[in-house]
């Protein structure tokens, strides 16, 4: 059987989230870099694989899938359903899904709203209202972690990995999470996860690219 292929760009948070899932499931993978800064995603060969031309994109022996969170869920369900990374209990699973959608629709969206205009639209400062929106998302996340070690309960799930990829990006842009005690403690716990360093390196490249265009710090 052909190995799992991940089309990946290390600075991209969702792309790193999929790779974190692969590392935490200890799967063999062939990583193929698609450089978004060089617009490699709109090469005709890549569009043939994924018409939405986004990363991450996974190819599992001919089954092609994109959307990082769908990839992570698929990998758990198809390769390691008993790993606990995507719980089988219906309520725990629902909470995991809620956190995954929170990451996409709230946390990562608010991070992206800060970084995208700086990276691609020539902005050189971060507006206060966008910082406030991000802080609000941190507060919610901090609340989710009240009384829990991980974001959806006492066990690690793919929601932690997805959120870790997002949080690492904005930390390396300069955001400070230390006043959100539960969040800061959770981030410390994440440091022992497989793939943490690799994720952090990609996040640093991303953060550096944003910081390089900012007139002043976060």
């Amino acid at each position: 059987m052909a190995p799992l292929i991940l089309y990946h760009f290390p600075p991209s948070a969702p792309s790193r989230a999929a790779l974190l899932a692969i590392r935490n499931l200890n799967l063999d993978v062939e990583v193929k870099e698609v450089n978004l800064f060089q617009k490699e995603q709109i090469n005709p060969e890549f569009i043939k694989i994924n018409p939405q031309h986004c990363v991450p994109t996974m190819d599992d022996d001919g089954f092609v899938l994109w959307e990082s969170r769908a990839i992570a869920q698929y990998l758990v369900e198809s390769k390691a359903p008993d790993s606990g990374l995507y719980p089988s209990d219906i309520q725990e699973r629902a909470l995991t899904n809620q956190r995954l959608y929170f990451d996409l629709g709230t946390l990562y969206t608010r991070i992206r709203a800060i970084c995208y205009p700086v990276l691609f639209l020539g902005e050189t400062t971060i507006p206060e209202d966008k910082k406030k929106q991000l802080q609000e998302a941190f507060e919610w996340l901090n609340g989710f972690l009240e009384g829990r070690k991980w974001v959806a309960g006492d066990n690690l799930t793919i929601a932690d990995l997805s959120i870790l990829a997002s949080i690492a990006s904005i930390i390396h842009v300069g955001a400070d999470i230390s006043e959100y005690k539960n969040l800061a403690a959770w981030y410390e716990n994440c440091k022992s996860l497989p793939g943490f360093e690799e994720n952090d390196e990609g996040a640093k490249v991303f953060g550096g690219a944003v910081k390089g265009k900012l007139k002043e710090g976060f």
Binding site: L65, E67, Q73, Y74, E77, S78, I90, R93, A94
Partner: peptide, 30 residues
Amino acid sequence: RAIMVYLVEKYGKTSSLYPTDVQRRAVVNQ
């Protein structure tokens, strides 16, 4: 979308709205 999945998993186990085949389910999630 989390609520939709929850309703099927809790109250509509035999429903084809959220397939049990992992690849078909993955496409729904995508």
